[in-house]
Simulated scan of single mutants.
Amino acid sequence: INCATISPPVHVDVEKLGNEAGAETLEACMASSMTQAREGKLYLMCGGNEKAFRIAEPILKELASTVRFIGKAGEAAKVKALVNMVMNINTAGLAEGLALGAALGLDLTMLREVFSQTGANSRVLETDGEDMQNREHSCFFSAGHAAKDSGIALELARSLSLDLPLARATKEQYDRMIAEGLGELDKSGIAELTFKDRHKHSGDRL
């Protein structure tokens, strides 16, 4: 059972090699935080042979509050790539909204509350908004992982000749975090690049 976030073709290759060796393999992609993992409340998206999935399902249910079979090998990894791509875009967008609000002199606690009650609401606002405001970036999902996972999604898009400008711009921001020594911060640390007078390199590209 492979829970790593890797490209879909790797899962396909692993299944093939496993079958050649007389073994069954399964991808169990996680869409959850470390806190949920510790509490046994993961959201697992599984791919591979459905018979193998049914055998492993009781074990997986001990780890997760939701276990979902997506399809053949590689399919769950595709869904995971899209989950993280959209999450990363939302995170970058929230950082920019809060940064502009701060530059305009708005009260960010008020702004976050308004966001939560309007079309600006998101799961990321709930998990990362206050951390962005308070510069609390203890790592639950690192900027480095965000860059990697956005890269997986972009590679899938390139293979289909599909242009994803928002995903590309988001990955560039996370790559910039890594280049500037911020890659081990939580993904919420992307706010350090957008708020004025925070990170020493912030604003260089304006």
Results as ranks from 00 to 15, higher is better:
Thr5Val: 09
Ser7Pro: 00
Pro9Lys: 00
Pro9Thr: 00
Val10Ile: 09
Val10Lys: 00
Val10Trp: 00
His11Pro: 00
His11Leu: 05
His11Ser: 10
Glu15Lys: 05
Leu17Arg: 14
Gly18Met: 02
Asn19Asp: 01
Glu20Gly: 10
Ala21Met: 10
Ala21Tyr: 03
Thr25Asn: 05
Met30Arg: 05
Met30Thr: 09
Met30Asp: 01
Ser32Ala: 14
Thr35Ala: 15
Arg38Ile: 05
Arg38Leu: 11
Glu39Phe: 01
Leu42Lys: 12
Leu42Tyr: 05
Tyr43Trp: 05
Leu44Thr: 02
Leu44Phe: 02
Met45Arg: 00
Cys46Arg: 03
Gly47Thr: 06
Gly47Gln: 04
Asn49Met: 04
Ala52Val: 12
Phe53Gly: 11
Ile59Asn: 05
Ile59Ser: 10
Glu62Gly: 10
Ser65Tyr: 01
Thr66Arg: 14
Val67Asp: 08
Val67Cys: 07
Ile70Pro: 02
Ile70Ala: 07
Gly71Glu: 12
Ala76Pro: 02
Ala77Lys: 01
Ala77Arg: 03
Lys80Met: 06
Met85Glu: 12
Asn88Tyr: 01
Asn90Met: 11
Gly97Ile: 06
Leu98Gln: 05
Ala102Arg: 13
Ala103Cys: 03
Asp107Thr: 07
Leu108Glu: 08
Thr109Phe: 05
Met110Arg: 14
Leu111Met: 15
Phe115Asn: 04
Ser116Ile: 07
Ser116Thr: 08
Ser116Met: 06
Gln117Leu: 15
Thr118Trp: 06
Gly119His: 03
Arg123Gly: 14
Val124Ile: 15
Glu126Gly: 02
Asp128Cys: 13
Glu130Met: 12
Asp131Tyr: 08
Met132Gly: 09
His137Ala: 05
Phe141Thr: 08
Ala153Thr: 03
Ala153Pro: 02
Glu155Ala: 00
Leu156Glu: 01
Arg158Gln: 12
Ser159Tyr: 00
Ser161Cys: 04
Leu164Lys: 04
Pro165Ile: 04
Leu166Asn: 06
Leu166Phe: 08
Leu166Met: 13
Ala167Ile: 04
Ala167Cys: 13
Arg168Gly: 03
Lys171Thr: 08
Gln173Phe: 02
Arg176Lys: 12
Met177Arg: 04
Met177Ser: 06
Glu180Pro: 03
Leu182Val: 06
Gly183Pro: 08
Leu185Tyr: 15
Lys187Asn: 15
Ser188His: 09
Ser188Ile: 12
Ser188Lys: 11
Ser188Tyr: 10
Ile190Trp: 06
Ala191Gly: 14
Glu192Gly: 06
Thr194Asn: 12
Thr194Cys: 14
Lys196Ser: 13
Lys200Cys: 08
His201Arg: 11
Gly203Glu: 04
